[in-house]
């Protein structure tokens, strides 16, 4: 993951509203996926903080169940596993081809934005 990120950072920014080549389209999709990932990480931090505040109210003398924050961490790990498996499945059509990374990025961005909305909704429920 680190190398593609470095490559993206070093490359000149293409005109993503009018990308014509596969390389440009892939790069734009990668930038979009990274932006979605950054937004997810920001929301995850907010939601995790909310669950930790909720954990503080748990009476451990009577409640031995999993904490809210631990449940959130487990859910997020499960989501990452799902995201990777789903995007691998969705990009198989182009496996080994130059368009495969673009499909993975597009899939990742879409699922990531949906997950960000879920995490935001969790905070609004608290």
């Amino acid at each position: 993951m680190l190398i593609p990120l470095l490559l993206l950072a070093a490359a000149p920014v293409p005109d993503c509203g009018n990308a014509q080549t596969q390389m440009a389209m892939t790069e734009c999709a990668g930038r979009d996926a990274n932006a979605a990932d950054a937004a997810l990480n920001r929301q995850y931090a907010v939601t995790l903080a909310a669950t930790k505040r909720q954990d503080a109210a748990i009476d451990r003398a009577t409640d031995k169940a999993i904490s809210y924050s631990a449940a959130l961490v487990a859910a997020q790990r499960a989501w990452i596993t799902f995201r990777d498996a789903e995007c691998r499945s969705q990009s198989m059509e182009m496996r080994g081809g130059s368009a495969q990374p673009m499909l993975v990025y597009s899939c990742t961005a879409a699922l990531t934005r949906a997950r960000t909305a879920q995490l935001k909704q969790l905070v609004s429920q608290r």
Partner: peptide, 23 residues
């Protein structure tokens, strides 16, 4: 690949809804 994703989705659904229920 589809089966892998579906299994992962099942695990994710259970975990995500456990969090929602925790509210």
């Amino acid at each position: 690949a589809l089966l892998d994703s579906q299994k992962a989705w099942r695990t994710y659904r259970a975990a995500a809804c456990r969090v929602e229920g925790g509210v």
